[in-house]
């Protein structure tokens, strides 16, 4: 998966990138909160961010607050990087909206496991988002059919929202998922094709007699 690394220390940044690439991830690196914000503001930004806490300029905590203020349906997964002995930082970081943390120096197994945990959340989020979109689309259709349909008492055409009178079959095809298959009922067959109707009646009478 695509991961954004934000750390002002060059060797830490490259260590993270080296290990994550070995684990098969696609990595982007930036050295400041400001650069990170530029990347994150793009619509196709990586959804998982490894964020250093203390950096000159825009620090990890403030960047995290900024990201959370613009999070939409598909929030970023943020893992904070802190130096080992700062327990208070970890609590403050989690309270501010980071999803997880990794202490420096980090070990590849822990890094891999925490990244995977993040990946699971992101995947679940994407699945829920697509299900919610499907539901929203279905609801649009249901709404159309639940409204009051003005229908002509004689020709049975339906008036749509643009004041246009549509044939019933045309209306159903454009406003629902249902498909229309055309046929003729026996009564209409009698009116419009009396000969075929008579022939069919005769045929069925003969069949009944043969059976008896």
């Amino acid at each position: 998966m695509r991961i954004l690394i934000v750390d002002d220390d060059l060797s830490t940044r490259n260590t993270l990138a080296g290990i994550l690439r070995k684990c098969g991830h696609d990595v982007e690196m930036v050295s400041s909160g400001e650069e990170a914000w530029t990347v994150i503001s793009q619509p196709d930004a990586p959804r998982l961010i490894l964020l250093d806490w203390l950096m000159p300029g825009l620090n990890g905590l403030d960047l995290c607050k900024r990201i959370r203020s613009m999070d939409g349906d598909n929030p970023f997964y943020i893992i904070m990087l802190t130096v080992k002995d700062n327990k208070e930082d970890i609590v403050e970081g989690l309270d501010t909206g980071t999803d997880d943390y990794i202490t420096k120096p980090f070990y590849p197994e822990e890094l891999r496991a925490r990244i995977n945990a993040g990946y699971r959340i992101i995947k679940m989020q994407n699945r829920l988002l697509s299900q919610a979109n499907d539901l929203r689309n279905s609801l649009d259709h249901i709404k159309t059919l639940q409204g009051i349909l003005p229908i002509c008492s004689f020709c049975k055409k339906i008036r749509d929202d643009k004041n246009y009178w549509q044939q019933l079959d045309e209306y159903i095809s454009t406003h629902t998922e249902a498909m229309v298959s055309h046929s003729i009922c026996p009564e209409c067959l009698g009116i419009h094709y009396p000969e075929i109707h008579q022939r069919m009646i005769r045929k069925s009478t003969e069949e009944e007699e043969n059976l008896n």
Binding site: D9, S11, D52, L54
Partner: peptide
């Protein structure tokens, strides 16, 4: 902040 950055780099090394 600079000392912190050296601290992190040294931990990593």
């Amino acid at each position: 902040l600079q000392a912190h950055s050296i601290n992190g780099a040294a931990a990593n090394m």
